[in-house]
Nucleic acid binder design. Structure first.
Lengths: 114, 114
DNA sequence: GAAATACATGAACAGTTGTTCATACGTTGA
DNA sequence: TCAACGTATGAACAACTGTTCATGTATTTC
């Protein structure tokens, strides 16, 4: 579910002060987005795909997790539109959905290593 | 620190900017950082403080939560160094720790509203 | 077609998380 | 000092999350 509040535009952003308080639903979506990044397995998957598209089995081997666990987490990453996949024979080749994901990861890492 | 994967089999660093697979511990820290942003109450608190330092009671009233719940979450935000506080009489005035927090929130919101 | 491969999915379980309730702590003003 | 206020904290509980195990589905090869 990726519902975006369509009927709520708060004040104009663009200052050291953002709008006061975004719509409740938007805040839920924001929390949900961060939640996807908040698990180690999913972070590992994202980093495994950082610059290399991989099959599910490849991911599992790379990060040292079972195929099932990876598949479960890929479902969540897919729902959040953080990864996408193409078919190659019987394999599904996953990759990061767009550069936004790179940015989010880099931003977080940047904060950690300040 | 700048720890790169220790026991990685193969690596193909081609993307400008980031290593292939960071150290396990760093990935845990990264997941933990995102985890702090992954709760609605904490997101509300951060937005309540986005451009206005506030006391605990003020925060609670602003976001519509109990004082206790807010205090519990502030402890987590403090531990993550996302907020700081100054004393004013018997009140504790909380504010965002630094601009990194603004950036993280904005980045996430940016992704949501793409 | 059947077997094999690659992946997805459901149920169940343990571990974690956030809230409420009650209470303790610390500061202020009389 | 004491009472009142603002905040922190611990325990308990319900809700959620991620893993494993078993099985199902889809695609390819024989």
């Amino acid at each position: 579910m990726n519902a975006i509040a369509a009927d709520d535009q708060d004040a104009a952003p663009e200052h050291p002060g953002e709008p006061c308080m975004p719509d409740e639903e938007l805040l839920y979506d924001l929390a949900d987005l961060f939640k996807v990044f908040s698990d180690t397995t999913r972070i590992k998957i994202l980093y495994a795909l950082f610059d290399t598209p991989r099959s599910v089995g490849d991911i599992a081997e790379t990060i040292g997790a079972t195929q099932s666990a990876v598949s479960h987490q890929l479902r969540i990453l897919k729902q959040a539109r953080l990864v996408r996949f193409d078919r190659d024979g019987r394999s599904l080749i996953y990759s990061l959905a767009d550069d936004h994901v790179h940015t989010m990861l880099a931003q977080g890492m940047n904060h950690i290593c300040e």
